[in-house]
Simulated scan of single mutants.
Amino acid sequence: DPDMMWLTTMNPETRRLIRVMPEDVAATAEVFDLLLGDNLQGRKDHIAENGYKYLEMADIS
Results as ranks from 00 to 15, higher is better:
3 D>N: 11
4 M>T: 15
6 W>Y: 14
7 L>W: 06
11 N>S: 06
11 N>K: 02
11 N>G: 06
13 E>F: 07
13 E>W: 02
13 E>V: 09
15 R>N: 15
15 R>F: 05
17 L>H: 07
17 L>F: 07
18 I>R: 11
18 I>H: 11
19 R>N: 09
19 R>T: 15
20 V>K: 08
20 V>N: 05
20 V>A: 04
21 M>T: 15
21 M>S: 11
21 M>P: 01
22 P>H: 06
24 D>N: 08
26 A>K: 08
26 A>Y: 05
27 A>C: 01
27 A>I: 09
28 T>Q: 12
30 E>W: 07
31 V>G: 00
31 V>Y: 07
31 V>H: 04
31 V>C: 08
31 V>E: 06
32 F>S: 09
35 L>F: 01
35 L>I: 04
36 L>Q: 09
37 G>S: 01
38 D>M: 07
39 N>M: 05
39 N>Y: 02
39 N>V: 03
39 N>H: 08
40 L>S: 09
40 L>E: 10
41 Q>W: 02
41 Q>T: 15
42 G>W: 02
42 G>I: 00
43 R>L: 01
43 R>C: 03
44 K>Y: 07
44 K>T: 09
44 K>M: 15
44 K>I: 13
44 K>V: 09
45 D>R: 06
45 D>L: 04
45 D>M: 01
46 H>M: 03
47 I>C: 08
47 I>Y: 09
49 E>P: 03
51 G>Y: 03
51 G>H: 01
51 G>D: 03
51 G>F: 03
53 K>Y: 05
53 K>A: 11
54 Y>M: 01
54 Y>W: 01
54 Y>A: 01
54 Y>G: 05
55 L>Y: 05
55 L>T: 13
55 L>C: 10
55 L>G: 05
58 A>S: 11
59 D>G: 07
59 D>V: 14
61 S>F: 12
